[in-house]
Design a protein around this nucleic acid. Structure first.
Length: 132
RNA sequence: AGUUCAGGCUGGGCAAUUGCCUCGAAGAAAUUCGGGGAGGAAAGUCCGAACUUCAUAGAACAGGGUGCCGGAUAACGUCCGGAGGCUCGAUAUUUCGGGUCAUGGAUAGUGCCACAGAAAAUAAACUUCCUCGAGGGAACUCGUGGUAAAGGUGAAACGGCAGGGUAAGAGCCUACCGCAGAAAUGGUAACAUUUCUGGUCCCGAUUUAGUCGGGAUCCCGGUUUUACCGGGACACGGCAAACCCCACCCGAAGCAAGGUCAAAUAAGGGAACUUUUCCGUAUUAUGCGGUAUAAAGUUGUUCGCUUUAAUCUGUGCCGCAAUUUUGUGGCAGAGAUGAGUUCCCGGGUAGACUGCUGGAUCCCGAUGGCAACAUCGGGACAAGAUAAAUAAUUGCCAUCCCGAUUUUAUCGGGAAACAGAAUUCGGCUUAUAAGCCUGAACUAUUU
RNA sequence: GUGGGCAUAGCUCAGUUGGUUAGAGUAUCAGGUUGUGGCCCUGAGGGUCGUGGGUUCAAAUCCCACUGCCCACC
């Protein structure tokens, strides 16, 4: 597995997984309220690891803005995913997380850059890690 | 020269690092190497097609759409060319240029036209006007007829204006304009231009004159050509984006179409196996009672409790009854129905694959055409994802703006739109920073 | 991909066979009533009828295009 990669195995692809997380997941917000996250942790001894997805609601912006926001979230996760790499394999846990923007939208934050997202992603990831 | 508006074109480039999707090659695999990776609107989903399935013997109705004429096209509500209307500007009185138009039919029928006005659609009633008669001194009143000119309102008033004419008047007559019809010429056509729409006589109704109806002859046009028919006009206000009529077009649904494979599950079909053991009792009945075993249900679990272990038909042997047919009981073994279990078929859900990108394709040139476009020749292959890839960061160079130095360059800072493929094409509509091109309007300066 | 609906005063809604002041409730403001406030009574203001075109003598109403919101189906 690549150190800074984000292949298809590390993303949530199935509709059942999304239904599970949206129905029984736990919320976590960043301190600036820019982002929110839903996560589910389940025991899985065969394939421990982390799976993520990025979701942007339809009312928050048009297609270009939503795509860019999701790419920025995935990019900042990709460069920081070493936070989870050791703990999940030790505890035999499969962690599933959905990130999505919360208070930001296209009208307020038209030009979004990586620096706006970076610190919030790290904060959410460390919070989830401490709760496991 | 600037500003605004309308239309059109372009829609920053190169490199490095880290990633994603897809295709190809290598490898047992992890993975490695190489090729490719958003738009002019990908958008809105407003039209038209291709493609697929369903239904089909054909047609019509209903419903929907389109609407000046000709052409282009696979098709269109699109495009090109032309005609006409409206409008703006210039010129200066007739043309030129720009913009724009859902531009068939109001004599097929129905309906609507507020307020005001005499009247809003069969032209008639009312007021006024005029002749004649009666009354009266007169103003005037009443009756009889004539006429549709006047009524000033309205968005719109039943051709306009001028002259003649008359008792008053009227296309009643005349000139010009408008409208309508016919013919000729030009044009494929829409349409445009030009010309014509007249004269004489007789009879009847009514009358002051006119007018109306009928007829004859000359004239014009057509046909079936010694003949027949038609014509010689002022009638018909607007609205069809009101119903409607006419002409033309449309079968329905959509890639979540459709096809292939196929966990699960219901119905159905086929095959195999199972459908019990012991004891007692009775005989009209394979019955009844007990016991063990198995399965199912109940319960957190065990025990316990409840239910089920079926039904029918031949065959052979034995016992009993009777008259030989026969009846009845037991045992053995077989078949059928039902039930249960397992397997297979079938079915098609989740899921996977396919449809899936090479096509009415794009670029260049020649020929035909005013053009849209067509034909021919040469060349090119250019995203294919599915909770959905096409990205992030940095540097350099271009473009524009601001500031400083300074004199045409340098330094520093900043800006760069609208927007993301989802089966594929042809259009339309809408959004769009900056730069460039074309056109129109306005403003200023100079000559 | 397909189909349907809504937009009118600050708010909730009438009004759409086209017709001459676009109306009601509530809210706001002013006056009255009361010792004061509320309730109550009287009056006033407040509308580019979502935007832009067109048809018509006349458009909130009819037609076309656009914007925003909502709903349904496979």
């Amino acid at each position: 597995m690549k150190k800074y990669g984000l292949s298809a195995d590390e993303r949530i692809k199935k509709k059942k997984d999304f239904d599970l997380i949206f129905s029984s997941g736990k919320f976590i917000f960043s301190s600036s309220k820019k982002l929110k996250a839903l996560y589910v942790a389940e025991e899985n001894k065969d394939e421990p690891g982390v799976k993520i997805a990025a979701v942007a609601g339809k009312k928050q912006g048009n297609a270009v803005w939503r795509n860019r926001t999701r790419r920025l979230i995935k990019e900042s996760y990709r460069l920081n995913k070493e936070i989870f790499s050791s703990t999940c394999s030790e505890k035999k846990i499969l962690l599933k997380i959905i990130f999505s923007p919360f208070s930001i939208n296209q009208k307020k934050n038209k030009e979004l850059s990586l620096e706006d997202i970076w610190s919030d992603i790290i904060e959410i990831m460390t919070k989830i890690k401490s709760r496991l």
